[in-house]
Nucleic acid binder design. Structure first.
Lengths: 346, 346
DNA sequence: ATGAAAGCGCTAACAT
DNA sequence: ATGTTAGCGCTTTCAT
């Protein structure tokens, strides 16, 4: 067996050490140090506490973990990139007040091919250490199988953040895309725009929700209309996209489901000689940090820190068994950041 | 006692479960699943393995931890801000190949007053969970006491990254500031500059090393000279700083010990009508990400990911007891990023 | 007001 | 080629 650590203070000090020194049993020490010693003589309590402090005694959470089945440790699997690290910061903030610590890991998000094997290995490492639950931001759909096979059957609480996974029945915390879409419409409407366009990718759940909310409001408003979804960054669709702005009575505002699309759109439009926001107001979604210095794009900030906080709160509910029985879907309303690519209709 | 988890597959499956099902003892299962079963009959080995797989058995690392005194888990205390999260990514990369996981935490780096109590609490949480060691990027000098009292006496390996702490005798991994300073001098010299200036803060260990390296090279070169250290962002020193550039035969190059100083210097110089790099070449240190889009500042990239990797490797050596006995000081040479604020002397 | 004893899931020394 | 036993550090029932 591996040697325990050397002989500094606080090392190798167990409840037994303290019990022996105080001339009482382990049980007594355990109860007193855990605040369950109401019945004990004040003198005993003080003595135990004093010895513990003097030795800088620290309880062994591993043992407590195997005894109680709870480790107060979460498995957090999130890439450490700008946007995501804000999610982690939000989680951390809530954990601070819940005696919880996170084991952090992630799979290489930068590689296009997600490494299923590697992620499964990471999950195993986390499960072996008996984390109470998981908070995961899945890097790809293809990883769903991992969660379905490794986490759910073991009945370990799992909260997904930022991205849902088809076929994985679990809690989810993300951005309120529907709400964002609605407010995009309301905002552009309030600037006087009536004729609008929408740019979005195909096959993106988030993008669809944003579009849905956007159109829902527009169809409630009178005298509003909006062209079909098109992707200015897609070779096939770019031409059609531009076409909309060439007819008579062209759109004066454009809502893009991501900031990337907003940038593509701006490029396409400016090549065609259109001014932003003079001729067309552009509103994005994502509030990408890399953008803000280059280009003052009006956009929705999904508030990743708030998402992290919300995910952590849900996690705590799950791990403690408080909170509702049904699976939760909680969404943080994005914050509108009006900058200089949107303006009143001229 | 808290209920163990419910009844899904892989839950509550222990070696005992497997042993019973196979009609052998715990020991047999333990040995076979740990690859120490060379002496066992192939049939037994296969049977055990099959049962384990079928039940999706996973070993309990908590138990292993209390038995062996090793948890394969590191306590990492680093703020999750841009520069630092790259350090964390470097650490993570190395841990992936060492069966190690990190418990990540940090104290609120944004608050000016570092919360000593909070950080001590975090260290306790980590110690209770019996991390094998620590990798810490201290947010303030005032926290030194925490490490001295809580970590060192317990003989827990501690590697400091990015920032050293006076009075804390421990391993350190950081940027090679001396080397950076030297190469700054060599680079500016190679561009033809002979008359130089240096901007740096007072009381910064890193800044002093950069200055030291810088001056060491200059004094080796013939016909070179460099004014005294001044801080253009300091009200008292700004005037003197500018004064240097007003004499006859003024400096044509400026090395700043941080990118922030480089920005201040540029402002001061441009107010005085001097052109960069036409009149003065400016070289910074830090390669701050927020800068790169605004201003193509020539600078040294301290390569935080490499620092993280190096710290993790040293950590692994410490935890495994391999590696040298003496305290280590390892430094990553920064990478020169020549952009457009430096040019040949005109 | 305190103790004794069983047990958590596993490892490792010591058998046979 | 496999089993027996003690023990890791603690919590929790059941005594007294």
């Amino acid at each position: 067996m591996r040697r325990k650590r050397g002989q500094g203070s606080g090392e190798g000090v167990t409840m037994k050490t303290i019990a022996d020194e105080a001339g009482v049993t382990l049980t007594t020490v355990s109860r007193i140090l855990n605040g369950k010693g109401d019945n004990y003589a004040a003198a005993t309590k003080e003595k135990i506490q004093e010895i513990a402090d003097r030795h800088r005694y620290r309880p062994n959470a591993l043992v407590r973990g195997i005894q109680t089945g709870k480790t107060d440790t979460a498995g957090v699997v999130i890439p450490l990139e700008p946007y995501f690290s804000d999610i982690v910061r939000g989680i951390h903030e809530v954990f601070l007040f819940n005696e919880t610590l996170m084991m952090l890991s992630w799979n290489d998000h930068s590689k296009q091919i997600p490494n299923e094997k590697l992620e499964r290995d990471i999950l195993h490492r986390l499960i072996d250490r008996r984390v109470d639950g998981f908070i995961i931001s899945p890097s790809a759909e293809s990883l769903a199988q991992n969660y379905i096979e490794e986490i759910l059957p073991r009945n370990i609480p799992l909260v997904l953040v930022d991205r849902e996974l088809e076929g994985v029945e679990t809690d989810f915390v993300g951005s309120d895309d529907l709400n964002g879409g609605r407010r995009a419409a309301e905002y552009l409407f309030s600037l006087g725009h009536r004729n609008m366009a929408f740019a979005g990718e195909q096959d993106s759940a988030a993008s669809s929700l944003r579009e849905q909310g956007f159109r829902a409001i527009l169809s409630d408003m009178s005298a509003c209309n909006c062209g079909e979804r098109l992707d200015p960054s897609d070779e096939e669709e770019a031409e059609g996209f531009l076409e909309q702005f060439r007819g008579k009575n062209p759109p004066t505002a454009l809502f893009c489901s991501t900031d990337d699309l907003a940038v593509s759109a701006m490029n396409v439009l400016s090549l065609a000689g259109l001014k932003v926001p003079g001729d067309v107001s552009i509103l994005g979604f994502g509030n990408a940090a890399w953008l803000q210095q280059e280009l003052p794009l009006s956009s929705f900030d999904p508030d990743p820190m708030a998402m992290g906080r919300m995910a952590a709160r849900l996690y705590i509910e799950r791990v403690n068994g408080t909170g509702p029985k049904q699976l939760q879907q909680r969404r943080v309303p994005p914050t509108l950041q009006a900058r200089s690519t949107t303006a009143p209709r001229s």
